[in-house]
Design a protein around this nucleic acid. Structure first.
Lengths: 204, 204
DNA sequence: CGCTTTGGCTAATGGCGCTAGCTTTACGGC
DNA sequence: GCCGTAAAGCTAGCGCCATTAGCCAAAGCG
């Protein structure tokens, strides 16, 4: 039996490809094994099981998303950064629907000490960091910054999710609607930045 | 063997309860059958299979959501209606997490002529109707109305989904953030209503 | 009172996740 | 260059779940 030369990363990457093609909820060890040219139990040499695969896939997707958001916003600030971030976010959700869906699963709580869960939690922080720094140019602090990030994530995710779920008719106008909504959020942020809120702890 | 007196509605209702307790992705015919006091294959007398159960559950949840939104906004208008709608929406998502998740699955396309799929599509329109009429007081039309609904749904859904996924830290301040974001969206809508867009076809 | 419809059942099949335990490949130390 | 060991594959087998086929009793109706 010649070796297939797999690794955890290779397995996770293949899993994300499967998720993109058939949907995250239909991601199956059997499918991944087949596409890796390997029998199902062999995967257990690289991941601890299906839940662990999900956790690692989520982490990998989140890191990929963070990288793309970061690349899109580097060197930009204010509304410019906001629009670029939004474009990149939606672009990722459309290009990699399965990976994006993986991004949204709740990172398991602190109680879960498995490698996959810790991986996932760490990756989630990366994305938050990028979004926070993209919003830095608006000069928000304290509660304002928290609310700004929450609102932006809600808007971006909500739009992406509804789009992915086919929740919108009139597909031809989606781009225009999206940009308009993001710009409006930017205006809201600008109005906040003139009336600063209290100080500390910008955790999400 | 005494009869259990099941019906399709009873099975679907029990399925939604299971989904609320263990998560929609862990909704299983076996669990529903057990809780109905019946063997698994007996369920096939009432629903066509697991996919059909999901479709019917989605439709039932959507109808329930539409009813609650409608009850919350009746007799209100403008920002008042908007806030009430938002509270009711988030309340439903928190109180019935499994049912709410069912709400988000894309209704199968027109190609799917199964009873469950048609049911689901019809129910989805109900929700849209309620949201549209809640926004009627803002005097929006044409593209503005479309964008308003899209933005509101994105914000509400995005927030609810991120909250359900544990995507926010600082849970104690979520209520305040939510109200603030909804109010801000209301202000955006008010600014749009003064500069009307083109006319027709307020489909979503 | 008998017939039909209906709602339950058992049995059997196939797919998948997972574990156990075996074999072979690659690699590092001598 | 050889040998021991760890890593990476395999087969076999279990249990759970969805699905189908076919049986049987209970309700409802004349």
């Amino acid at each position: 039996m010649p070796r297939a030369g797999l690794s955890r990363d290779a397995v996770v990457a293949e899993a994300l490809r499967v998720a993109d093609e058939v949907g995250l909820d239909r991601l199956t060890l059997a499918a991944v094994a087949q596409r890796c040219g390997v029998r199902l139990p062999s995967l257990y040499k690289h991941v601890a099981g299906l839940p662990a695969l999900h956790a690692h896939a989520a982490a990998a997707a989140e890191r990929e998303l963070a990288a793309e958001l970061s690349a899109a916003t580097v060197g930009r600030a204010g509304e410019d950064a906001l629009l670029a971030l939004a474009e990149a976010y939606r672009g990722y959700a459309r290009r990699r629907p399965g990976a994006y869906a993986a991004t949204l699963r709740a990172p398991a709580g602190e109680g879960d000490t498995s490698a996959g869960a810790a991986d996932h939690r760490a990756a989630a922080h990366e994305v938050m960091g990028v979004v926070l720094s993209a919003l830095a140019g608006f000069g928000l602090s304290g509660e304002d910054a928290v609310d700004a990030v929450r609102g932006l994530r809600s808007l971006l995710h909500g739009f992406a999710a509804l789009e992915a779920a086919g929740g919108f008719a009139l597909p031809q106008d989606l781009d225009r609607s999206y940009r308009r909504l993001v710009r409006s959020h930017g205006e809201v942020l600008r109005s906040w930045s003139s009336a600063p809120g209290p100080a500390p702890d910008p955790v999400r």
